[in-house]
Amino acid sequence: MIDLIQKLSGIYGPSGNEELVSEAIREEIESYVDEIDVDVMGNLIAVKKGTGDGKRIMLAAHMDQIGLMVTHIDDKGFLRFANLGGISVANSICRRVVFKNGTVGVIGYETELNSWKDITLSKMYIDIGASDREEAERLVQIGDVAVYHSLFSASNGKYIGGAMDDRAGCALLVKTIKSIGDSPNDLYFVFTVQEELGLRGAKTSAYALEPDLAIAVDVTATGDTPKCKPMAVSLGDGPAIKIKDASVLAHPKVKELMITTAQKHGIPYQLEILEYGGTDSGAIHLSRSGVPSGVLSIPCRYVHSDSETIDAGDMDNGVKLLIKILEENISI
C-alpha cells in the first residue's frame, strides 16, 4: 500500500487536469478488470463483471486535487491566480507549488497589507523566479494550474502527502480491484474528475452507468487535534462510515450494509457526521430516479493542505471492509 499511495499522491492532477493520474491508475489496474475506458468528461471507468446476477455497484473515488490556476502574468513575471477548489489563504502563504512541466513557484502575498486578516487570494501571487513577463511566459501560460509541491512521508504508521484527498481513495479502490475475489456483483470502479469543483465527474458517470447502488470513497475531516472543531472521527480508529455531510444523507440500507459487514468480520470502523463538505455520492444519489448511496471515508488531518495526513491501518481496514461488502449478495 505504501508504494501505491506514495506513487498516486505524488502525481500532478488538479481538477480538470487529471490525465496523468488516470494514466497511472489505468496501468495499475488494466490487467485486473474486464473493461476500461475514459468518458467525455475524463472519468476513468473500469468494470469487473460479476459471477452471478448480483447488483450493479458503482464505486467512486476522485482523481482530482485542489489547485491554483494562473489568471494573469505581470510585467515583472509574477503570476496571479484563482483557486480551483478549496485553496485557503492560511494553508498557502509561503508554500511551494509546482506546475505540470515541473516549474516550481512560491506563493507570496502583498506585504504592505496591515493584517493577515486582510490577505485574500487576490492579494497573493506565485513567484516562479522569472525576471519579467517574457521569461515567465516561457514557463507558464494563463490557464495553467499549479498544485502544492509536497514531500511524501511515511512516519509512525501515518502517510503524509499533498493529495491524500483523494488519491487515498483512489489507492483504496486500486488495492480493492487487485485483491478482491469472486463477486456476484457487476462492479463499476469510477475514478472521477472535477469533484473539487462540484462533484462533476460523478454526475455524468452515474447517469451513464445507472447503478443499483453506489459507494464513494473519499477522505473526511477528524476531530482529534488540539482545540479543533468537535467531530467524532479520529485518525487510526478505522475507516469511517458516513451518516451525512452537506451533500448526502447516506441511504439507510447502504449504511446498514456497511456497518453489519464491518461487525461481522471484526473490522474496526467509526461513524462519520461531517457538518460541511460533500463528496461524489452527493451527485450519484440524485442521478436519474435515484441511487441508494453511501460513503466509505478515510479519516484525514489537515485536509486541503500540502500535508494531508492519513493512517496506514485505516487504509488497510478500508480495503478489507470494501472487499467484504462487494463480495456479498446484496439485497437492497
Binding site: 467525455v40 490556476m69 494573469h72 490557464g143 462533476r200 455524468t204 451513464a208
Partner: peptide
Amino acid sequence: QIKEGITGGNDAGEIQRSRAGAM
C-alpha cells in the same frame, strides 16, 4: 484573448454535465 479569472458561470455548466456529459 484568454479570459483571465474564473469568476461567473454560464450555460456551459449545464450542457457539459447533461446526461452522460458533452464537450
